[in-house]
Design a binder for these strands. Sequence first.
DNA 1: AGCAACTTAGTTGCGCACAACTTAATCGGT
DNA 2: ACCGATTAAGTTGTGCGCAACTAAGTTGCT
Lengths: 149, 149
Amino acid sequence: MVTDDLVLGRQVCFALYAASRALTDVYRPILDEFGLTYPQYLVLLVLWERGDDVPTVSELGAALRLDSGTLSPLLKRLEAAGVLVRSRSARDERRVEVRLTDAGRALRERMCGVPLRVARATGLTEAELIGLRDTLTRVTETIHRQREK
Amino acid sequence: MVTDDLVLGRQVCFALYAASRALTDVYRPILDEFGLTYPQYLVLLVLWERGDDVPTVSELGAALRLDSGTLSPLLKRLEAAGVLVRSRSARDERRVEVRLTDAGRALRERMCGVPLRVARATGLTEAELIGLRDTLTRVTETIHRQREK
DNA sequence: AGCAACTTAGTTGCGCACAACTTAATCGGT
DNA sequence: ACCGATTAAGTTGTGCGCAACTAAGTTGCT
């Protein structure tokens, strides 16, 4: 029966939407201790990971799948907070390079316990977390691959 | 090493955030045909499911885990679009009852193919979808149970 | 060299999410 | 019956997320 497919509880989409917001709820008070929002934290993860390989705004966007409409004001706030600096590339004035400040690098040490605190709140085992992550990653990549055609 | 835990690709949180947005990307053009956004569609799912059991704003909020700050303007837009009507309860003037119009009920038939179209775009089998949904639902409930303490 | 096509960031506008607050109605204890 | 506490919906303000657009710089073709 077609009708049953429309029931809220049966939809994977709602489960994904609800779980994503629930996890953000877990992050919020934790990240609040550091004056960060969740998307801002994701930007820092990319910058920490890159190290000396300084990304541009669009490279950050490729990593997080966010466009300049989202990133420009977000990066402006992170710059105002003193964790990073934006500067035009000398060899290509269109590009803006995003560099951590010392304060931004120092945050990495202070926040190293965050992922574990969040993982515990999910109530899943490590194996379940890995399985979940891999399934989700596969879904995301399938969708993006189809959109590129 | 603590450092490895902070790498973006290893984080379940990012996988969840990315998958949720990717799935919304799948919905957007489909729902656009009906003039709806994704959260608006979720509200309709609840209303269709309830049938004659007319929910209040806060009952909708409990089903979708959204507060009046989100729902009030959203419902106002759906009312302006003609798919539902809001009216103060006669027996408790604080409550606002949310009722489908004929147009809102008619949308259900027109949209019955939507879930299947979206499910196909994920590239997962039916069994994988069910497994994913159940894992996500478990995560969400674990988090909410902990928050209530 | 000149110029059209493209790339990169940024801006604007809209719709969520959510915290904090306001307003109005109901409940509960005395 | 009164009045403080609670409940329900709405409002305000902030920060995403994304579409559409703008401004400025670079590339490539002739």
